[in-house]
Amino acid sequence: MQGVLAALPAAALARHADGQTTHPSEQPVNRDNLGGRSVPAASQPARDDYHPAFFTQAEWHFLNAACDCLIPPDHIGPGAVQAGVPQYIDRQMATPWAAGAEWYMQAPFFDAKPEFGYQSRLTPRQQYRLGIRAIDQACRQEAGSPFADMPAEHQVDILRRIESGAITSPDLSLRLFFTSFLLANTREGYFCDPMYGGNRGMEAWAMIGHPGARADYLDWVGRDGPYPYGPVDIHGDDA
């Protein structure tokens, strides 16, 4: 970890101190000693009075604005922000995954084709920290204001150009940050179990007719008509 950090531009390290915040979602899964049966961690559904633990206020504004662009609310279903996706991503920043603890993170670091997997020296936390900073910098150069303060159409245009590789940064691959983190984590948070902070009220599941943690609708396969029951989440609450 020290070696990885040493290789980063000095400016990028400025706001790294709070990356170590511990979070309730980091609590280990309860296991008994009677055969390894386990239960999930406590439920932490999305809430109105949420305060981000990892993201700064400026980053939090970016994240909310970006999520709103990626999945806006409409007549079909809720938007990503309503569903709690920024809260989900902030909570994920406290997990071992976000620290790169589940990956091989040693040198050498090559530019390689996607099929060779993740090659960056950056942990997911560093991806977000540097990625948001780089995008806001690009927005300030182009329009004089950070991403969150731009009009919606302009925001979507910026994201499109990042995805296509037209906007780049010397700090990291913005394209990789967008596709592998911002967009991928937004999708996860939108359809995750509500215990992780996203998919508030299981509305995303209800939207697509997914039964959730019931994990079973075999009796309806081959029958005409829609599946008649709403979803249930891992902690047993049903919609």
Partner: peptide, 12 residues
């Protein structure tokens, strides 16, 4: 006494 997980876990 024997099973720690028998209590329901409260939500928020």
């Amino acid at each position: 006494d024997t099973m720690a997980y028998t209590q329901p876990q409260s939500g928020q």
